[in-house]
């Protein structure tokens, strides 16, 4: 088994507000998706969610406001999963609420193993 990082990217849209019910339902979708991966014993690390505060440092000590790599798109978090191949990892990422519900993308990246 190899390990892959699933990186969550969303457009940063602070003007969009969700109702508590919507948020409850979002949370359940995320938990169900991660629970489903964990139930296959393929969740290597439940990762972290990243907040939207951030600065980006550029060469020459230039600090830009905000964590954005591209305009308005930010990385909101990651998890690490176990899969045989990048295709299997991508297949597992298909169930991610960001992909299912729209509103974001999941980047699937292999982790370079340190031992052999």
């Amino acid at each position: 088994m190899n390990e892959f990082v699933l990186i969550f990217r969303t457009d940063y849209l602070p003007e969009v507000k969700f109702s508590p019910d919507e948020m409850q339902s979002m949370m359940q979708h995320w938990q169900n998706w991660m629970g489903g991966i964990a139930a296959q014993n393929k969740l290597a690390d439940s990762g972290n969610r990243l907040g939207s505060n951030g600065n980006t440092l550029q060469p020459g000590s230039v600090i830009t406001n905000g964590p954005y790599a591209e305009i308005k798109e930010i990385i909101t978090g990651y998890i690490i999963i176990r899969a045989e191949s990048i295709d299997e990892a991508a297949e597992m990422a298909k169930g991610c609420p960001l992909v299912v519900g729209g509103g974001g993308q999941v980047e699937v990246r292999n982790i370079v193993p340190m031992n052999g």
């Binding site: 359940q28 938990q31 629970g35 964990a38």
Partner: peptide, 12 residues
């Protein structure tokens, strides 16, 4: 279901 999700995330 939600509790099992959390449990599995902690320990398979």
């Amino acid at each position: 279901l939600q509790l099992y999700n959390k449990l599995l995330i902690i320990e398979y």
